[in-house]
């Protein structure tokens, strides 16, 4: 007996997939929900709701608006255990980050990320703090040889960022 394809959703799956492809997560279509990624994922282990496998199912069935504000994806540490273990070549890390990029476009961004981004633009370091005293205490120059020491280097970085699509978000 021939079994007809079961359609689990009436959502616009193609529109969501098109966005995912544009943001670098096109391998989403290869996922068969085996769960290998989730078995090694720190986000899944800690019990956050929208870990890799579950996120992918929402996206595959065209549910995007429903999950846009969930912060789980921003807890992904990019460890890439999933990429190593996935038997289908999904590159789950790239899919999670593609979803993050869609969230970012809609400004569904945690405060910690906006602070890092502002630090990154204004100093060249996402993690920033005045370390001159600590550095001198251990016998180093007060300023590391980075954008902090070379203003023209910071200007180069800012030029690259100003000309990027990121500038349109108005976060720096």
């Amino acid at each position: 007996m021939q079994v007809e394809t079961v359609n689990l959703t009436q959502k616009d799956r193609k529109a969501v997939l098109a966005q995912m492809i544009e943001k670098g997560g096109g391998n989403l279509t290869k996922c068969i929900q085996c769960g290998a990624c989730a078995s090694v994922c720190p986000v899944a282990i800690t019990g956050l709701p929208l870990y890799c496998k579950r996120l992918f199912r929402f996206l595959q069935t065209g549910h995007l608006e429903e999950i846009l504000d969930d912060a789980s994806s921003w807890a992904c540490v990019a460890c890439n255990r999933c990429t190593e273990i996935c038997p289908r070549g999904v590159d789950p890390f790239h899919v999670v980050f593609a979803f993050r990029r869609i969230q970012a476009q809609e400004l569904a961004i945690p405060a910690s990320a906006t602070t890092s981004l502002m630090n990154f633009y204004t100093t060249g370091h996402a993690v920033y703090g005045d370390a001159s005293e600590l550095r001198q205490k251990v016998g180093l120059d007060p300023v590391p040889p980075s954008t902090l020491k070379y203003p023209e280097a910071l200007k180069e970085l800012q030029t690259l960022l100003d000309e990027s699509p990121m500038a349109e978000l108005g976060l720096f």
Partner: peptide, 24 residues
């Protein structure tokens, strides 16, 4: 590496735009 910047950290450019990540 005189004048280096943040790599860019996962939570910055890689979370927003692949090309900006690659350029930085």
């Amino acid at each position: 590496l005189d004048g280096f910047s943040c790599c860019p950290a996962w939570g910055t450019a890689p979370s927003f735009d692949i090309d900006t990540w690659l350029v930085v």
